[in-house]
Amino acid sequence: MAEIKLEAIRKSYGRTEVIHGIDAEISDGEFIVIVGPSGCGKSTLLRMVAGLETITSGDIHIGDRVVNKLEPRERDIAMVFQNYALYPHMSVFDNMAYGLKIANVPKPEIASRVAEAARMLELEPYLDRKPRQLSGGQRQRVAMGRAIVRKPAVFLFDEPLSNLDAKLRVQMRLEIKALQRKLGVTALYVTHDQVEAMTLADRMIVMNAGVAEQVGAPLDVYANPATLFVAGFIGSPPMNVLSHDVRPGRGPLDAGAVIGIRPEHIDLAAPGTGLLDADVAFCEPLGAETLVHCVTAAGDKIVVRIDGEVSLPADGSRVGLAIDPARILAFNAEGKRTAD
């Protein structure tokens, strides 16, 4: 069990800096999700914590040690890889036991630790099989088992669910969360999927272009995005962005500044009764909810999320958009959140 502290972490390949100074403090047993679009540097950051990439500058603390120069095996971590990275020529048992064998753990102890992990992950019937004889979900479990048996201070997950189909992903997501709670091990989890991030994280780090845009609890980040990027990245469908202020009594915005409104914070109303009017382009009924795609007179596209049981407005009909002004977020030209 351990805290992790990242201090001004930077990474350069040659002259190109890809991580521009990241600070974070992760407390013991916390589940932290690093989320961001592909190429934002989130995997690089994780791999630096793992010791698979060198750190150009800054310090990584795990527990009370600075681990910058330590080999992965000396860092007391375990990692679950995107493609599972199971050794194809070893049985499930040997895959899980390999790290322990290298660490010269006595055989009976290896057997009992693997057995315990296998029981926890319901892998007992498969211990003698080779990875190719397993389904995707089972391989995923073996990869987790390999991490668990080492009883590390930190779990590192590098997009572990991205190779699974949608249904299995939801199921495994819950299992990972439950397992981490049960073991109480600090976890650092990288994903590009904001749903995964929202559901798993105690706190999340939203990364973009090598910078941590915001660190916070999922609902906090959702309700109070610090930047326009975070507002657009977290939430699906993304926040509506308008280049002029629709709030009553407000003038035009500064050049480049925008306001944002979540789709669920807009209601359909009779034309003329809302903050502004728009024409319905089309509707996407999803069952529990319906997404109504509208176009304003100014040409802005706005998505409205309404209850699935409300009758749908006809395509092309004019509607009013009722918005609580307090729900509108404003961003300046640099994309930073402003007071109003």
Partner: peptide, 10 residues
């Protein structure tokens, strides 16, 4: 990733 897994395994 296999090499990395092996390195993490020590």
């Amino acid at each position: 990733e296999l090499t990395e897994a092996a390195r993490v395994d020590g």
